[in-house]
Nucleic acid binder design. Structure first.
Lengths: 191, 191, 191, 191
DNA sequence: TTTTAAGCGAGACGGTACGTCCTGTCTTGCT
DNA sequence: AGCAAGACAGGACGTACCGTCTCGCTTAAAA
């Protein structure tokens, strides 16, 4: 517990400068080439100030997400009535976002951080992919209840496959991925 | 072409020692904590010997794959006649392999390497995921020709979703993924 | 000018440890075998700490001289009235000092540093031999004024020859050098 | 002893190429920056060929001297009848030679080699300075016998001082040394 | 008001890994 | 047996960051 509030309060200016610098470097160079040193240099803060508030690079990223400084491709899942159309819209929105090099870079950086350490993976999942996954499950369940999905189909399986498709696309630059519509159609198409 | 054969020939012993050491460290610590220094130390070789043959860490991994020193979860896609049963078998085999911590660690290491640099991603994709993807597409196409898949479904989309599901599982440790059967059923189930 | 006093102050302990280690290695192994690596190892400091304060090995030696950690054979020139007796005393003192292997080793190390690079030669000359040379010139001039030297004899020439004799002795181990008295007698003897 | 003469004879071409390359590098960069690697590269020979015939860098230098590839400032001591005039001529010739940067560089390189290791010092002394010293002693003795030197003056002391003066000059670039005539006059002047 | 305590920038500390260069040795095929 | 070529283990180089530490200087609540 932060018992006392004596002493100089934390500088909001420094905090913002650090997060902004981290975001820039992350986008420019990726997670591995993101160094505390450079964050401090760019943000005009001391290295110790960073270590005081964040134990690891991953926690800075986490804060970046919380602060909304990182526009993640985590578009809300629409609900217009048609499950197939809604999921297609969502996947298309994600795909469009990923065409922005900055978005793609940040996404890859997050994958790097997650793949490098299961602990960070859990943290980042709970802040990024987790909620999106839940939204998808909810939307699919609703569609299933409305009879827009074959009854035996598992909504979690569909959500996993959708997000997995996004990950696959992010990790295979230059490859020729299937169209969003085709993926959704395969997953929830009626026949 | 191997132009000259003059000079001392490359030491197969050193080559194997380096690859073996790299494999061990990769499994133990992951891609980021894999250092050339430690590979040299563990393998009893000189650092220069590593740099002479591999320009980057990723290329060592690539050789590891080529040498079969890395048992990747890239099981062959079976062909027993039933598309749904075959894909389920394949996905179950992968899932089983990933339950081995060493397998999972190596897989995450490859994802780290790929996510860190698009160039390495391309290289590793062509050596690992690419061929698997192609096998899947082939098997699905065959099943489609045999009328075991709804006609409008894109085989590439299905392959993307299947591999994506594996990636998603690898990146979300502790999460509760959908069963292989459920995923395949969602993708290629008849109704 | 010491601009800022911000930041952690330079560690005097580290500075001394580095200079001491350098002095030991210099005496043991000579200038060429003196490595930054070993200085760091012996002194228990980081290599970077050395590079932070000294750009080259020669500058460490220079500091060693300034700090008096190096007892150079640069005895003060006595002044008892008799020029010939004083110069002989001085040369004998130097010769005696050079009989100490450590002294001889350090002297040879300085010669190595100087002969290896004119820039370092200038630096080291200004800190070591230069002042001694000046003292000699002064003493000789005084003796000349007192009529203890043939009038046409150049005091600089005598000083050059005296120091040169010392250098020659240092560079010819095992040789049978002339006695100090004989050298001085040749240089400033009257008849 | 080179007992057998079976097998391929030593390549004179390689030997010359190595010595020439060594001489060039020595003059350009000095003794410390002279590497076996570069000698081999420049001479178009293999590194092993160098190691086969010379155990150390210093021995290459020694061969260089023997081969006359190194024009040392070791002019013959003239004998025209006047000791003072002859020694002055000799010292002037040396000084003139040292004004050639290449000469000076090679001389400094030899001093580096000698000061770095007493063993090399002995070797090089016996090949370079030793004979010169002997010539000086002989010439001075002859002059002394002819009554051109104060009787009590030691010829070895004079030779030491003369050569020492040369060394001193070589090690103090930029300094303003005494004129050759002044040095000789101080040493052997009559009054 | 003074303390007093914490945050801040700066920057030095002991370390580790980097990628390069050179060492001295070794092992080829050719001469 | 010598040669050029070139790989080998080893080790120092100088650089970049790491995570920690210690300065002088704010800054604001508590005394």
């Amino acid at each position: 517990m932060p018992t006392s509030s004596r002493g100089r309060p934390r500088s909001e200016v420094a905090r913002r400068a650090i997060l902004t610098a981290a975001r820039e470097i992350l986008a420019e160079k990726g997670y591995e080439r993101l160094t505390i040193q450079e964050i401090a240099d760019r943000s005009g803060t001391g290295r110790q100030t960073i270590y005081r508030w964040w134990a690891t690079k991953a926690l800075i990223i986490a804060d970046l997400l919380l602060a909304g400084e990182l526009d993640l491709p985590s578009e809300a899942v629409p609900d217009t009535g048609s499950l197939e159309r809604d999921l297609t819209s969502w996947l298309e929105a994600i795909a469009a976002a990923m065409r922005d090099p900055l978005q793609a870079s940040i996404t890859r950086a997050l994958i790097t951080a997650a793949s490098d350490d299961p602990e960070e993976a859990r943290l980042l999942y709970s802040m990024t992919t987790g909620p999106v996954h839940q939204s998808l499950v909810d939307r699919i369940s609703k569609g299933k209840a409305a009879g827009q999905l074959r009854v035996e189909v598992d909504e979690i399986a569909v959500a996993d496959a959708l997000i997995g498709t996004v990950l696959f696309g992010a990790l295979t630059p230059g490859a020729n991925p299937a169209a969003p519509g085709a993926v959704v159609s395969a997953l929830v198409g009626r026949s």
